[in-house]
Amino acid sequence: MAKIIVVTSGKGGVGKTTTSAAFGTGLALSGHRTVVVDFDVGLRNLDLIMGCERRVVYDLVNVIHGEAKLQQALIRDKRVAGLAILAASQTRDKDALTLDGVATVLADLSKEFDYIICDSPAGIEKGAHLAMYFADEALVVTNPEVSSVRDSDRILGLLSSKTHKVEEGNGNIKEHLVVTRYSPSRVDKGEMMSLEDVQEILNIPLLGVIPESTAVLQASNAGTPVILDQVSDAGKAYEDLVARFLGEARPMRFIEAQRSGFLRRLFGG
């Protein structure tokens, strides 16, 4: 039985798609068959971030409406074995999704994959609701910033009340906090919320901290998930995150401000 993990946040632009792509890729690299599904109908981005935008023929909406078979719509990743993408439709909107349709697609995907990552759109409307509805676990992506934290809190409320698991009385969705765009130097200056501040409000276990990094933009432009950039801090942080998710204990890196020595400033790094 596949594990369904939703990557959600409430707030837009915090790093859900970046995280979905990196997390999904990381799981596949660890040997698990993984599919990443884009639920942002009408504003699809997952295909861009994963570098397969030129190979999209059919999408999630086509499959739900019976216009294509699931196998026709699945795009196999060229770099990583065992990784696939199911794109969202660009020409339709969220009303094209149905609860039963999504349930059927997820059930079909469960037969082939170990992990199904649902990349949620921003907001709390139908797209976000359907992305989280069948989830077993959730990655709640949050920037260390007041509006993002409040929106994540709202999402946590919805995860604990308006999802299949909870409504059927099958326990709770396991929630993981992913803090993205973290800048320890700004935290030290008092400009940015600290990890402790965020955790005090959200009160869910921390899975990973991804530092603010130029590598993320470069990765988006190149269409390669940032976890494949193993030199960058963001890439390494996502690698740690995947390892932690799979049960390995790894200390949090990139949460202390670097003290720039003279030589470091001279030679960069």
């Binding site: 709390i124 409040r150 929106d151 809190d153 709202r154 946590l156 409320g157 919805l158 604990s160 009340s161 009160n203």
Partner: peptide, 8 residues
């Protein structure tokens, strides 16, 4: 017993 989240 659970935290009361934003919007609840």
């Amino acid at each position: 017993l659970q935290p009361v989240r934003s919007g609840q």
